[in-house]
Design a protein around this nucleic acid. Sequence first.
RNA 1: GGGGGAGUAGCCCAAUUGGCAGAGGCAAGGGACUUAAAAUCCCUCCAGUACGGGUUCGAGUCCCGUCUCCCCUACCA
Length: 900
Amino acid sequence: MARNDRVHGLLGCRAPGIPGGPAMPHYDYTAIEARWQQSWQENGCFRTPGPGDEGFDASKPKFYVLDMFPYPSGAGLHVGHPKGYTATDVMARFKRHQGFNVLHPMGWDAFGLPAEQYAIQTGTHPAVTTQVNVDRFREQLKALGLSYDWEREVNTTDPGYYRWTQWIFTKLYQQGLAYEAEVPVWWCEELGTVLANEEVIDGRSERGSHPCVKRPLRQWMLKITAYAERLLADLDLVEWPESVRAMQREWIGRSEGAEVRFQLAGDDTEEGFTVFTTRPDTLFGATFCVLAPEHPLVAEIVTEENQAAVRDYLAQAAAKSDLERSDLQKDKSGVFTGAYAVNPVFEEGDPRRLVPVWVADYVLMGYGTGAIMCVPGGDQRDHEFATRYQLPIVRVVRPEALARNAPHVDGGFDATHGMTDVELETVCWAGEGEMMNSEWLDGMASTEAKLRMIAWLEERGLGRARVTYRLRDWLFSRQRYWGEPFPVLHGPDGETALVAADDLPVTLPELDDFKPAGALEPPLGRAKDWVEVVDADGRVWRRETNSMPQWAGSCWYYLRFLDPHNTEQAWNAEAEKYWMPIDLYVGGAEHAVLHLLYARFWHKVLYDCGLVSTLEPFHKLVNQGMVQSFAFRDARGVLVPVDDVDEGAEGSFTRRADGAVVERQVAKMSKALRNVINPDDVIREYGADTLRLYEAFMGPVTASAPWNPRDLPGVHRFLQRAWRLFVPTADEGPEIHPQLLQEEAASAEIERALHKTIAKVGSDLEQMGNNTAIAALMEFVNLVTKHAAQWNRAQAQRFLILLEPFAPHFAEELWARLGLTQPLYQQPWPEHDPALLLSDRIELPVQVNGKLRARVEVDAAADADSIEAAAREAAAEHLQGTVRKVVVVPGRMVNFVVTP
RNA sequence: GGGGGAGUAGCCCAAUUGGCAGAGGCAAGGGACUUAAAAUCCCUCCAGUACGGGUUCGAGUCCCGUCUCCCCUACCA
């Protein structure tokens, strides 16, 4: 039968069972969800008392399950948000059934650029925009039936919150971890602000894609590098995805090596420079040195005849963005300074002792010392450079494989260079191996040579072992209005002072123009009365007019949730000791490095200040997968908006306008593709419980998967089937099957299946296997349906407890209709009897030479001998030859190894 | 180039971590019910696990190699 459904969004399939008749017998999700959400709110059901609060039960174990709190954008939620929120809510509800005190809060990361941009365009104060967006987000989240303790809601833009963000800054400052520096920073003219390195992608701002340039500016920096080693080492303490830990390790970028001092040649000068190298073993192969264009020594050492060329080169390099510098990586450029440095391993008079010093922009001033020694025989980059500028290449490490096999390699073995002729021309060996051309290191393993060379350098004061990190200090100031003001005053004599703790918060001044106050003066500079502060002596101080980056508020919000209304302290120590660390933290992979690294850094500083009791804040981390959507392309590869596409009979898709065939593919949801799914629409058409079930049923939490409107009716049908097990379908029928209102004898088969389901759902939920838990519930419902609902009240009750984490409104409604008055969400998780899961008789596969040949039914408790005997009989016709071996795994299978 | 992850039925996904490839859902086909349709219920169809080797009594699962896809990162000396 040919169909011609529209495939857009939810509209592809009509929702089955839209309430048409009298509401009661049907599954009227709209009424049910409204009723229970109201009940939860009015009765404060998910309010979670903590230590010191009335009603707190210290004897229960705790579980802190947290979502990465959202930035409340103007667009509202999309269906990607509930994927993670559903997963954590299922866990929170499950843990409540298990008797835990569950902390499950939500809040808003509400400072940030969009509201400020909107303010500049429209004059609407960012606080107003933020409030509107927050209200909308909260409403949408409540419509999902998420069991947050809304009394703990926090908002980073609330002065009562950012008072403590400022307070933590003062702690950082007092620890010597906050300092001001004149640093080259990314300046975005369009946004009128400085951006952090990570907010600039390919020379353009991450938000809005505006061009950015580097310029020096006074900035606040946080000394995160002081914690590099601990941030790296303590990754071993947490239960995080390997990918995230790997990303953080790379970001920190620890590398071990040595500093080597190179003196400049001639004139008995004491001048020189220090290089950092990870391969001190290759020092005999260092045939030239390269300084970064920004290296301060460049101007001093350049000789007369090279002045012009160097000046041109520096100008060129300065004009390039980092992107352009790295983009041209195939084509390394540089220029000779005319100066020579001394390679300290060679004797006076040795021609190899003097090495030319070049300037090249493949060396970065921000890493190591901004100067390198170049070993073109052992480093690909140096090799390219040397080849291009015809600098000498000396090989000092012979590859292991060649060291053993070289005489047999085609092309002949060159004893001098330890490589074949072919490789001598083409290969640069950057790995480990055996030392050569290195005098007293020759023949040694390169790993050993590293240590020897470092010792040799240290003895002579020419160098030392050193560890370098890629991690840089954190640029912590922004030229924006909508951020936390710094609690800092600048004195008339250039001194810096913190605002007293009792005077916090330093609140944002009212402004009606949010544009920068001057070329490099942030918007806060417009608030003259706010900026100038007169002290008791009549001296005029100026407030810091930079503000903090958006990361600041999100660095510690998980701590404020512990004690959100405390006006005396950021949090109470007792609450911190009870709730921390976070047992489960769920959020997108986009925060793998920055948010999680910055928050860990603050946490460790707070730990050192004795303010928190755990080394790490987030014990278990889970990245939820992306919810993608379908998109369509025509034959020319042009994207066709989803609502212009029809679906044909055999999974083919055509453009409505001209019937052209289009290809379906999976893409991110975007306005341009018109394939964004709004949760409000899903809730209207199917209800929040169906949405929750679908989000959880799509696949593992961690997996990305496209939103498939075709699959929604499947989970909705499951709820309706379950509904019919409780509620008679007749229009005038009662609210609940009468058999469920009295104690009937239990069906043994259903009882057994229920125990199996309890065990399966419980163990799946423990590991966030929500999709398979739902499959088990579906299996159970199918079974009960098949038996004409021959189940009883006690079974129905336990089933509802299992279902509640996924479909809480639905389950509470039926629980109430059973006449039960204690709320369902408080019920203990049902017990299961392992003995009931086992059958008396089991069927085992019988294999012959690994191939399935027969089945045999035996007692579950049968021993290996009797199983083997039964199996021999069952597979007799396949056991003609010699049975050489028999493998019996009781309860699993039997395998005969037979040779004919 | 480096790092992390993934390839199982037409599609989304399971498989007690080495033991009968299939739990669940979608789609498709057939049937029951119905004046008819919808809804509902019942039944059925389909892969040998990307590819090539290896270990093993036995491999989707472990090892080696190859291919494809996704994510992150990229002159870091």
